[in-house]
């Protein structure tokens, strides 16, 4: 049975990257606990608009855990505290209790400047992807699916890596602002497949170089990233990226 809860929401307001920013607070009354977290924020925004105040800005799109847009740091955890495998949009109010104070912050990392409130600029990830996260193929008729045989385990593992949705929770959680979990997942999804092998060396070097250039930090293996990743990416990917990169550099 759904029940209603009342709580205080503390949400981060910031007008652009240079602004100092501050928290605003609002009491929320009688919210059904089967409301999703983002629906609750929609209710908040309707109330703010009715009161003639500026609505709270946050990113979202698919609202079903596949696009990677939603990105809220809730009560000290990226995407809020769930059993792992859930994004902000998959978080429900039944995780909270009557009388709670819920603090909502943006991803805080130098490489992700705030655009407004809790919406941050994650185009750095697109730039890393564009630096090498692809295979160069001749387009044309699609090949027969069996033309290149791939062992099931390899295909599965590559698929697991490919489920990274580029949300940036790993960077948000990392005390070093490192993007290694994201980059290693994107490198791994191709490194594990025969189609990715020809450009593996070039890809690892180019993506790491771009990552460094954009100001992400040096990974010190704290494992905060894998603890919060909604897609359960593992630091085994980071070890693979290190191997790929070392192999490429030693072959130069």
């Amino acid at each position: 049975m759904a029940k209603n809860i009342s709580f205080t929401i503390r949400y981060w307001k910031q007008n652009g990257p240079k602004d100092a920013g501050h928290f605003d607070e609002r009491e929320m009354h009688d919210i059904p606990d089967d409301t999703s977290f983002l629906e609750m924020l929609d209710i908040l925004n309707e109330q703010l608009i009715e009161d003639g105040q500026e609505p709270f800005t946050f990113d979202h799109d698919c609202r079903e855990g596949i696009c990677g847009m939603c990105s809220l740091y809730i009560n000290g955890t990226p995407h809020g505290k769930t059993e792992r495998g859930a994004t902000t949009c998959q978080l429900y109010m039944r995780r909270f209790n009557d009388g709670d104070v819920i603090t909502v912050e943006p991803w805080r990392s130098a490489a992700f400047p705030v655009i407004k409130d809790c919406m941050v600029d994650r185009s750095a990830f697109d730039k890393i992807q564009a630096a090498g996260g692809y295979t160069t193929i001749r387009t044309g008729q699609a090949q027969d699916a069996n033309a290149i045989l791939i062992p099931k385990e390899d295909a599965d593992e590559a698929m697991d890596c490919a489920t990274c949705i580029g949300c940036g929770a790993c960077v948000a959680a990392c005390k070093n602002g490192s993007a290694m979990l994201f980059v290693s997942s994107k490198v791994s999804q191709l490194a594990l497949l025969p189609q990715g092998k020809p450009e593996a060396a070039k890809r690892a070097k180019a993506m790491i170089a771009k990552m460094d250039e954009l100001g992400f930090g040096n990974c010190t293996n704290t494992r905060a990233c894998e603890a919060v990743c909604p897609k359960n990416e593992s630091i085994a990917n980071i070890a693979r990226l290190n191997r790929e990169y070392l192999k490429a550099k030693l072959a130069d």
Binding site: R108, S109, A110, A111, C174, K175, N176, G177, S178, G215, F216, G217, N218, T220
Partner: peptide
């Protein structure tokens, strides 16, 4: 570098 990457 890591402190810098973390931001202010």
């Amino acid at each position: 570098q890591n402190r810098k990457a973390r931001g202010q």
